[in-house]
Design a protein around this nucleic acid. Structure first.
Lengths: 189, 189
DNA sequence: TACATTTTGTGACGATCGTCACAGGTAGAA
DNA sequence: TTCTACCTGTGACGATCGTCACAAAATGTA
């Protein structure tokens, strides 16, 4: 819980009273490895603040899982399209390790936000932060090659490489596992 | 202005009074073809509601422009990362035709939002909508090949193909102009 | 320890892509 | 109309990628 409070204070102004009023919308949930936080076809009703462990978001295309994001400690995980619109999610989110998350319930969060402007601002800032991250990675795919994408991840998100397998990373970078292996080999002269 | 009002009403509940209170944050701006709405290195202070014409967002990498988005009539154009965080924008936005936009000034919008909850909700919904669109296209790049990306655009966004040149589209799809030409040729028979 | 499972590296080969070069087509301006 | 600038198609060629196959290495479990 302290990690969430630190996260919130880094993001926006938040009083003790707002914190108390936020509590009804929060619950702590544990997930085993390979347990789903969100399943494809379900409507995303939650924001997951990752306290311990990590998870990944993926789309299943022709029986193959294509990773679209990793969420590590102190990240917010969700499917923004489904959460925002109430449509079914096209992606799944699954725990890659035993995972502890603080879950924001959408309905209760919106209720609390109506009463408390600081909670309203928190919600808005969470979406903004999520959108900015999404923009970062969307741009990455738009303008860089797989080789350059790897270099970018190595520079800006080295924690990812410490925890994610080559297979999972290759799927995220949008190349075959073998190709990632060769990209690595090619550059280390 | 009626087009903006229709856009707002489709997005959220909005009273006559909120509309009047929103006015100080709005201004209509005309752009000539190839005029910048936002230049790389500047901080994005505006949301642009596209009333007439269209524009594109691009990054310049090694002297080559890589398109990352097109914004047509009734779209909101902005750089979400710069607008949200106040950082310099890494992307530029430029008019592809003579263009008319209704500009939301960030400072005045935030002022109006503080006074009027419906304007606050409008701002939040704009960001949400923008994030959802971004998610759509980010996913497109993550999980599909250039060929499949083209098929997706043809099915879901055919208006784009009516207005954007092959050269601009190829840059957006992330392939060479010649490759797009061959993808088209390959599938037709 | 021994065994099973998962992960990673690598070779071979065909498919696709980016680049360079050039030609034809189209649209707008003088 | 003529000129110019831009857009599109296509051939050639080398580079890179995806796929299949198999072996080695690492990891987890009995």
């Amino acid at each position: 819980m302290e990690s969430l409070l630190r996260f919130i204070h880094a993001l926006t102004i938040f009083s003790e009273e707002s914190w108390i009023r936020l509590q009804p919308a929060l619950s702590t949930q544990e997930f085993k490895k390979n347990e789903f936080l969100l399943k494809e076809g379900a409507v995303c009703q939650s924001l997951f603040f990752i306290e311990k462990g990590y998870c990944r978001s993926f789309h299943e295309i022709d029986g193959i899982e294509k990773n679209t994001a990793f969420y590590l400690e102190n990240d917010i995980a969700t499917n923004i399209r489904s959460f925002g619109s109430g449509e079914k999610s096209a992606a799944s989110i699954i725990a890659c390790e035993p995972l502890t998350a603080i879950v924001f319930d959408k309905v209760l969060l919106f209720e609390a936000a109506r009463q408390t402007p600081e909670i309203e601002a928190l919600g808005r800032n969470c979406i903004r932060l999520f959108a900015a991250k999404q923009d970062e990675f969307a741009t990455l795919f738009n303008i860089y090659s797989a080789k350059d994408r790897l270099a970018y991840i190595e520079e800006k998100h080295p924690q990812l490489l410490q925890r994610v397998s080559q297979t999972q990373l290759a799927s995220f970078l949008g190349v075959a596992r073998e190709t990632l292996s060769r990209i690595r080999k090619r550059r280390v002269p």
